[in-house]
Computed example of a mutant assay.
Amino acid sequence: MRLRNVPGADAYLTAHPLVIKNETRYRGTWKETFQNPENPIHIEIGMGKGQFLLTLAKENPSINYIGIERYSSVLLRALERFDNDEEYKDVNNIRFICMDATNLPEVFAVGEIDKIYLNFSDPWPKARHAKRRLTSKQFFERYDKILAFDGVVEFKTDNRELFDFSLEQVELAGWVLLAKTYDLHNDPTLSRGNVMTEYEEKFSGQGHPIHKLIAMRQ
């Protein structure tokens, strides 16, 4: 996937106080970084323009959130939303990292993360790229290294092929499927309290059903 470079994005991220630089130095000390070590930490991998995670951070001040985005030009948009929207002016339980998710075990220690959100991830449609999908067995192995004992992964997508692939990978990885739906917005249980992403609003508005699964280790 090729994204347009945004001039000044890297400088903006470097100067921003909530964007973590040299993130591997924080491994094992993330709770102390938030200065409230009793609170759980949830991360979103591929946070896009930030609507989902910023909403959660605002609504749940007793949970710490870390947004992970690979592309500086995309993370820039999330930061601009955070900095310029008055509704987030009192939100202080969120941090941001610009990094590739393949490096998760180098950034977070064993058991340090309580929940992982994956929303509308890149489907990497070519078969030879399957291991790059964030719901591949290879990535579940990475999640295994950072999740707490009872930690969970929540995944949403409108891509049926990717969702079916993900269900298969949950089983292959030896994880347990706690819940699934092929039509989230019409599911009386899983739709309760659902926070939509930008993509979710767009795709559901076009009539695409949204799929969701929740998985944890055995």
Rank of each mutant, 00 (worst) to 15 (best):
N103S: 14
P123A: 08
S136C: 02
F108D: 00
P105D: 12
I113Q: 11
S121Q: 04
E141S: 14
R128C: 12
K137L: 09
P125F: 05
P125K: 00
E141R: 13
P125N: 02
V110R: 14
A109H: 10
I116L: 04
N119G: 11
P125W: 09
E112N: 00
S121I: 12
F140E: 04
F139D: 02
D122I: 10
I116S: 02
I113G: 11
A127W: 05
I116R: 02
I116K: 00
P105K: 05
A109S: 15
S136I: 08
K131S: 13
I116Y: 00
D100P: 08
W124Y: 12
K131P: 08
P123E: 09
D144G: 03
Y143R: 05
R142A: 10
L104C: 11
S136T: 07
F139L: 05
A109C: 07
A130I: 03
I113P: 03
M99P: 00
I116N: 02
N103G: 13
I116F: 01
K137N: 10
R128Y: 10
P123F: 08
P125E: 04
D100A: 13
N119P: 03
G111Y: 07
K131W: 06
T135G: 00
R142I: 05
M99C: 11
T135H: 01
R133V: 06
V110W: 05
V110T: 13
S121F: 01
Q138M: 12
F120I: 05
T102M: 10
Y143T: 09
N119C: 13
L118H: 11
Y143Q: 02
V110K: 14
A130D: 15
A130H: 15
D144R: 15
V107W: 04
R142P: 00
N103T: 14
K115V: 08
K115H: 15
F120T: 01
D122H: 07
Y143D: 10
S121V: 08
T135C: 01
F140K: 00
L134H: 01
R132P: 01
A130Q: 14
V107M: 07
K126S: 11
F108G: 03
G111F: 05
Q138C: 04
P125C: 03
R142W: 01
D144N: 14
N103Q: 14
L104F: 09
F108A: 06
E141Q: 15
F120Y: 14
